[in-house]
Design a protein around this nucleic acid. Structure first.
Lengths: 174, 174
DNA sequence: TCCCGCATGTAATTCGTTACATGATTGG
DNA sequence: CCAATCATGTAACGAATTACATGCGGGA
């Protein structure tokens, strides 16, 4: 149930329409919490029904600008302080578990691909970081930088691990 | 659609019933791809209907032992070689993005909790590692060890990052 | 004999993806 | 005037969670 909180979080800064929110989901939040248009519009309707947001203004083309209500802000604060489970699925790790089904050569090749993918993800984020460093806008960007650093460390870790794992496999095989 | 492949993967080793599989999901795969009983039984029925597994034996209490078919093994191999997207949601990172909504003190406190959580996750996996090192069973455990190492590195990284992030916040505030 | 573990399933609900459908406005 | 962008929504499906429902069999 976190899409709900992503929407609330984006509305803290300023009121926005579903269309505006989609742009934010496709840029700032793309790496952290992707969402589709259907989902966003549906969630906006539900949030409005629950009184966590309301329509602050209407514009052309049926545009509805939603703003956070006091209840909405309270709910966001509550969620932010909440403990987190941490349990998550990983298709990548699932593949590793069953790597024994492939030949050792295929398995090593697969791990090399994982390393490459991690390296390219890392490069992509580094590029994003460079483009972000120039403008200095508010809190969202500041905390976005923390999230970005997490991503950088994660992908570096993934790459090193994949290389290590490939080496483990070749060592065992020999 | 990876639950399907988790089931196929577990059946490579030896035939098993839904009940058997649930035990495996709650032990070996618990950290990587948790699944519920409903899901497993449903997927077994679908896989059998699709010819990827079949009922190899029936036992007491209506027990059905499923075994991998050639088609099933082929599908598993296909999936293993497949490229991976890597895109994944992270509620933890989403929280970081909106940390500016809290007071700096609350935010730092939250990051400290994240660090603690990571440390405890790390400790749990280290314990698992110790208990696993004694028995030496087949491929599944060998590759499970690679997955375990990933988890260890991940949680170490999470802890360090959370500490770094907390420091960033206190440095900026002062 | 009685309880615990084995063993299977269904139902209801939520979340997320993909695809479809439709229309208004504005700038060139 | 016409195309790109703005803007909203519905439908169908698949994946996951939680809760419910039922019953056999074997060991103490």
């Amino acid at each position: 149930m976190s899409l709900r909180h992503a929407v609330l979080g984006l509305l803290v800064d300023k009121p926005a329409s579903g269309y505006d929110l989609m742009k934010l989901f496709n840029t700032s939040l793309a790496n952290v919490w992707p969402a589709t248009q259907s989902q966003v519009y549906g969630e906006l309707a539900r949030l409005a029904a629950g009184g966590l947001i309301d329509v602050a203004a209407e514009g052309p083309r049926g545009r509805k600008e939603y703003a956070l209500t006091d209840d909405g802000l309270a709910e966001l604060r509550r969620w932010l302080a909440e403990a987190q489970p941490g349990q998550q699925r990983s298709a990548a790790l699932l593949r590793v578990f069953f790597l024994g089904v492939l030949t050792p050569e295929q398995a090593v090749h697969h791990l090399a691909e994982v390393a490459e993918q991690a390296a390219s993800d890392h490069a992509r984020l580094r590029q994003l970081q460079d483009s972000l460093d120039w403008d200095e806008e508010g809190m969202l960007t500041a905390n976005g930088r923390l999230a970005l650093e997490y991503g950088l460390r994660l992908h570096a870790m993934r790459e090193e691990w994949a290389q290590w794992a490939a080496q483990q496999l070749t060592a065992t095989t020999e």
